[in-house]
Amino acid sequence: MLQKKICMLGSFAVGKTSLVRRFVESIFSPEYFTTVGAKVDKKDVEVAGQKMTMVLWDLYGEDDFQKIRWSHFGGAFGFLLVADGTRRATLDKAIELEQKARDAVGVLPFVFVINKSDLADEWEIDSEAQASLAAKGWKILHTSAKTGEGVEQAFLALAQAMLDK
C-alpha cells in the first residue's frame, strides 16, 4: 500500500496533536498538553480509490523555546499547516513557517488548517486575511478538533494534494 509521510506544522497550542488524535483515534481532550519532541502515528485512508497509509509526524509547535528541526521533514510528501483561529499571531507564525519549510525542504503540498472553528465567534483571523492567502493558492480549511468538524476532510485534502502532485 502507498505510504506517505506528512508533518504537522504550526505555532504552539494551535491543536496539532488534537487534530491527529481526532483523525487517528477519534478522541479529543480539552486539556492542553504541550508536545515535546515528535510523535509518529499512522492512519490508513482511501482517496479517489487509492489506498494510502498516512504516516503522521506530530511535531512540537515552534515558539521562543523550541525551533523546528527541519531534518524531521526528510522523506515527507506534504504537511498540514495549522493555525488557531482565535489567535491572530498563529497565522503570522504559519505564514513564516510555510516560507521556512519551502526554504528548507523545497515546495511540498500542504493544506492550511484554521483550527478551533467551534470558537468562531472569537476568531481573530478575518476573511480578508484568508482571501489573500487563498489568492496565493493556499488551500484553506476550517476545523475543530473538539467537534471533529472538517478534520477528516483536511487530512484527505492533503492526501489528495499529495496524489495530485
Binding site: 492542553y32 504541550t34 515535546v36 519532541g37 515558539d63 499571531a89
Partner: peptide, 20 residues
C-alpha cells in the same frame, strides 16, 4: 530530562496563553 523539559515548556506556554 523529558519530564523536566515537559514541565518547563508546559508552564511557559500555559503562562503565555494565559497572558494572551
Amino acid at each position: 530530562e523529558f519530564r523536566e523539559t515537559s514541565r518547563y515548556l508546559q508552564t511557559a506556554r500555559d503562562s503565555k496563553l494565559a497572558h494572551e
